[in-house]
Computed example of a mutant assay.
Amino acid sequence: MSDALFAGLAPELPDNARLYSAMLLVRRTEERLLALFNRGLVSGTTHACIGQEANAVGIIGLLDPGRDHVISNHRCHGHYLAFGGSLAGLLGEVLGLDGGVCGGRGGSQHLRAGGFLSNGIQGGGAPVACGLALGARLAGREGGVTALCLGDGTLGQGVLYEALNMAALWDLPVLFLVEDNGYAQTTPTADAVAGSMVARGAAFGIRTAEIDSTDVLALRDFGREVVGAVRGSGRPLFAVVHTHRLCAHSKGDDTRPPEAVAALCAHDPLTVHGARLARAEREAAEAWAGARIDAALAAVAPGLVEGGP
C-alpha cells in the first residue's frame, strides 16, 4: 500500500490498525468536504464513497503507483487517496483552488495525478483504460495493471462493452472493478440491471470474480487474488464487489427510506473492522486522521481549518 496514504502514522502499527486508519482518513476527509459544501465553499458538486472505503483501501491500495494506473469515476476520492494521492491536492481541487491537484479546474470528479485519472462521465474511462494498458505493452512496460473503477449503473453504458470486447481480443491487463452499491443514483440496481453482473464479463471470455463484503480483510484477500491474476497473466479480469453506500448519491439527494439506510449501517466497514481494535487504537486513528486533514487544509486554505468536520 502506498506510503503516502500512511504519512505520519507509526510504521510499527499492526496491519489491522493501519487499515482502519486508512479507511478512517477517507471517511473523515469526505465528511469534511461535505461540511465545506454545506457552507458553500466547494467548487461544483461532490460525491462521497462513505460506506465503500474498504473497497478502496483493500483493493486499490494494493496497486503500485510506480507502474500501475487507476481510472476512477465520479465517486473517486477513496480510490485517489488509497492510490497515494495528495490529500492537500484533493482538498484544494474540490475547493477550486490553485493548490488543487489540477489547479482547481477539475473539481471533485476529474482528478489527474501520476497514474490516477477520474472521469465524471459514466463509462467514459473504459476506453481510456484499454488505451493505457495497450500503450504500456507497446512501450515494453510489462507487469502493470490498469484498474477501471465502475459503478453498477455503468453496466448500462455501451462503451463499457466495447472496452470489454477490446480488452478480451487484445489480452489487455485491465481489472474491471464494479462496485455494486445497489443504486444507480436513485434507481435500484434490480430495476436497471438484468441477469447476472459477473456473466457480463464472462460473455467476453474474461475471467470473473465476485465478493459480497464490506470487511476490509476479506476485500484485501480478494484484491490480492484479482490484482495478482491480472498482473501475472497480463489479461483482463471482471470483478464485482457488492457493497453499500451509506451516504446520499451526491450531497443530499437520497431518496431511500431512512430505515433502509439505517439497516445498512450494520455493514459499515469502520464498524466491522473497528471491532477488531482496542478503543485506544481507534482513538489514535481519529487523532491522526483529524490532524492530517487539518494540516492538508491549512496548506491550501488556512482560513478554513476548524479542527473538525
Rank of each mutant, 00 (worst) to 15 (best):
L33R: 01
D254I: 04
H79C: 13
V101T: 14
A167C: 07
S196A: 06
T186G: 08
G223S: 12
S213V: 05
A192M: 13
P11T: 06
G85I: 10
L134I: 12
A22Q: 07
V94M: 06
A133W: 03
M197N: 05
M1F: 08
G234L: 10
V272S: 01
M166G: 04
R276E: 10
I206S: 08
L13S: 13
P14R: 07
E142R: 15
S213Y: 08
P258Y: 03
R67N: 09
G103S: 12
A266S: 13
A147P: 06
L63C: 05
G78H: 01
C149Y: 11
V226D: 11
V70S: 10
G8D: 08
A82G: 09
R39W: 01
E162V: 10
F222I: 02
A184F: 01
E210L: 10
I60T: 15
H47Q: 10
G40A: 02
C130D: 12
E12N: 09
T154F: 00
E12K: 02
D221N: 08
R32G: 07
A266M: 02
N165H: 10
E283G: 12
G115A: 11
V198S: 14
R282S: 03
V272R: 04
V261L: 13
A301F: 02
R207E: 15
L138Q: 14
W288H: 13
S250A: 15
T208H: 02
I293E: 03
R200S: 05
A129E: 01
T214P: 00
L217Q: 09
A248S: 15
A147S: 09
G8P: 13
R32Y: 04
G151N: 07
D268M: 09
A139M: 12
V300R: 00
R141N: 14
P65G: 05
G85Q: 10
N73H: 14
P127A: 13
P188F: 05
L111M: 09
L277N: 07
G106H: 10
H77N: 11
A218W: 00
H273A: 13
A239K: 04
L5E: 02
L270T: 03
L81W: 03
R279L: 15
A7T: 14
N165D: 13
T46P: 05
A126M: 03
F204Y: 14
G201L: 03
A229N: 04
D191H: 12
D180G: 00
V145P: 09
V42I: 15
A262Q: 14
K251N: 15
G182M: 07
L169H: 11
N73F: 02
A10T: 13
N55G: 14
D212N: 06
P127Q: 11
Q109E: 15
L25P: 05
K251E: 15
P309W: 12
L117N: 14
A280H: 12
R67A: 14
L36V: 03
L132N: 03
R279F: 09
R39I: 00
P65A: 09
A299L: 08
L117R: 13
C76E: 08
I60S: 06
L175R: 00
S118Q: 07
L13Y: 04
L177I: 01
L13M: 10
G89C: 10
C265G: 11
D180V: 04
R75P: 02
A275Y: 08
C49E: 08
A266E: 15
L237N: 07
H249Q: 07
A184P: 01
A35H: 14
A229I: 05
S108H: 07
I121T: 14
G307H: 03
A7H: 09
R137S: 13
